[in-house]
């Protein structure tokens, strides 16, 4: 217990406190000005929207991937299972460059999509693509173990009591998966909110249009505006923490309900 706390304090709380302290030294007026200029506001909105969208996409498809990996035997399953973790291991810059090459107007996916009138690279859609890529392991790896522990006889029991497949899924499987699924979503979202390396390559980085908040932090640092950078970082941190707490609350709620069922 003491070790855990000490470790977390050193690795997590210390740097974060330094961040907050630096921001606190600014004074409220300077902080508000730095954290809410139009360009910064536009970047929050973009970062939030793309992170939410990517988390939802991963929520659906990550769930499907986890489901298939747990429930269906197929050749090469171990390899596919290992593939899921790759986005965590790959340097994000590499992911960004690969995705950009693929989705740029000259790349093969980009060319096909452009023929349909869809811009992916250098547009907000490109940011979502990158965030989906880096976020997928979080959903799959959160849902998978819980799904594995969900025993088939519970479903059989439900079936024997006359539930149809949809009922079984909605009333038996889903409630017990919900907390894990929400955790996965929250992690994917939080990761997406702060993701920098892969996004800067594919985003296009146009102010007010495709400029994400973490890029603005880097930009401020390059202008020697340490305080402005800190202000944005603190806002992002606050959003991420609020969101994680909110999801934690939801989880508690749903597991209580789950226990009642």
């Amino acid at each position: 217990m003491g070790l855990t706390l000490g470790y977390l304090a050193f690795i997590v709380i210390l740097p974060l406190s330094a961040l907050v302290l630096k921001a606190a030294a600014m004074g409220p007026a300077a902080f508000a000005a730095a954290a809410t200029s139009p360009r910064v506001m536009a970047s929050y909105s973009l970062s939030l929207k793309t992170a939410v969208l990517a988390a939802l996409v991963n929520g659906v498809f990550g769930f499907v991937v986890a489901w298939v990996l747990v429930r269906y035997p197929f050749p090469g399953k171990k390899v596919v299972d290992a593939l899921v973790d790759l986005p965590l291991a790959l340097p994000t810059a590499v992911a960004g460059i690969v995705l950009t090459t693929l989705y740029a107007p000259g790349g093969w996916a980009g060319k096909a999509l452009l023929a349909l009138g869809v811009h992916v690279a250098f547009a907000p859609a490109g940011i979502v693509v990158a965030l989906v890529f880096v976020g997928i392991p979080f959903v799959v790896r959160s849902v998978q173990p819980v799904l594995e522990n969900l025993e088939a006889d519970v479903e059989e029991a439900a079936a024997s009591l006359g539930a149809d497949r949809l009922q079984i899924f909605l009333r038996v499987v889903l409630p017990s998966l919900l907390p894990a699924w929400l955790t996965g979503l929250a992690l994917a979202f939080a990761r997406g909110l702060g993701e920098y390396g892969s996004v800067v390559f594919i985003a296009g980085n146009l102010p007010m249009k495709t400029e994400i908040a973490p890029l603005l932090i880097m930009t401020k640092l390059d202008q020697y505006d340490y305080e402005g950078a800190t202000a944005i970082a603190v806002v992002l941190l606050a959003v991420a923490v609020t969101f994680l707490l909110f999801i934690n609350g939801l989880q508690r709620l749903s597991s209580r309900r789950g226990a009642a069922v």
Partner: peptide
């Protein structure tokens, strides 16, 4: 740890 390292620390100037 994953949450902390990935999500929260990410706004720090990683590439630099």
């Amino acid at each position: 740890l994953v949450t902390a390292a990935r999500a929260v620390a990410a706004p720090a100037p990683r590439p630099a």
